[in-house]
Design a binder for these strands. Structure first.
Lengths: 191, 191
DNA sequence: GTCTATACGATGATAGAC
DNA sequence: GTCTATCATCGTATAGAC
């Protein structure tokens, strides 16, 4: 049932790759049409607009992070364990679906006003929940007393290069990467 | 002598802000002209092209990082101390000149082919020198034995959110931020 | 240096035949 | 659903008068 790739799916996939490689604005509808083997106008039988594609990518990715943090919050676990799970979540999403995540990370600002607003609400909410876990850890004395926002953003962005470096064929598996990044962020680089 | 702001300087400054806020491609020459109070065509008495501005921003920023690492490599210091100095360098540049750094970070890919190539050579060289300091630290047993590339990119990107969060008026000074980020990356979040 | 006027290509998107 | 034809708009940049 989910075996056959519809043309619509193909369009979204090729668009994601182009958006990732060149950026949303630098990707033309003509170029996308070319990639999927259609005339530009034919695309519009499948999509409403170029922005519709960006919207889907951004909100689908956002949903993955939200689903992840929903599960993690439910865990009966310490803040340390939750933080580890969050880092793992980011690494999993970044390695399993690197194309979408790149677009989600870098191109969201080209969403049109109303949609952008909606997107930023989701993001702010996610960040706030992530930060609460850090705060709780500090409160309980599990974490060092550093500024929670600084910790949050440092951790959030410190996995944002993965999509650009990680290639499925590499010697390092996502698990290896996760181990090193967790070590670095939680125990520090210093021996 | 450097007191008077020339119109050319004003153009570059306003362009940097627009590129930062909207992205290079989303910024039109018409809009830039409007910001500096000129007709679009008049800009071309001061600049050769829109891309010339992007080039200047990217290469000027690159030079700051290169100057910084030049000095740090000369220090008679341990890898730990050099790493701290490198993190401080990134934070200083990101807080003192956040506009340019944002553009440098996010918009370099819109440089045209030849210039882009040149830029990537500089970046690769910088990253390689940064990585060597990490490798040396691992070799000497000062740092944990984690993958040097992972450490490099985690550290590099972990200061890349600053320009978006840091406002000169904040309660936290660049020194405070530097302290927390260094603690997090070097000693880890865990107490 | 600044202006008005404009070239001219690329853009996202639509109309309507098949 | 796909095509050809086309639109309106906007992009960077230039020409030439003042």
């Amino acid at each position: 049932m989910a075996k056959k790739q519809t043309r619509k799916q193909l369009i979204f996939e090729e668009a994601a790759k182009l958006f990732r490689d060149k950026g949303y604005l630098a990707t033309s509808v003509r170029e996308l049409a070319d990639k999927v083997g259609l005339e530009p106008s034919s695309l519009y039988s499948h999509i409403k607009s170029k922005e519709e594609i960006l919207q889907k990518i951004c909100f689908d990715s956002a949903q993955k992070f939200i689903d992840g943090i929903n599960e993690i919050e439910k865990l009966n676990a310490t803040p340390s364990e939750k933080l580890k799970a969050l880092i793992a979540l980011h690494i999993t999403i970044a390695t399993e679906d690197s194309t979408s995540v790149t677009v989600f990370n870098d191109e969201w600002r080209h969403l049109s006003q109303d949609v952008l607003k909606e997107f930023l609400v989701l993001r702010r909410d996610y960040e706030s929940r992530f930060k609460n876990i850090i705060k709780k850890g500090i409160e309980l004395g599990e974490f060092k007393n550093i500024n929670p926002s600084i910790a949050l953003y440092t951790i959030l962005t410190s996995v944002r290069w993965l999509h650009y470096w990680y290639k499925p064929g590499r010697q390092l598996s996502p698990t290896d990467i996760e181990k090193d990044i967790c070590t670095l962020l939680i125990k520090g680089l210093k021996e």
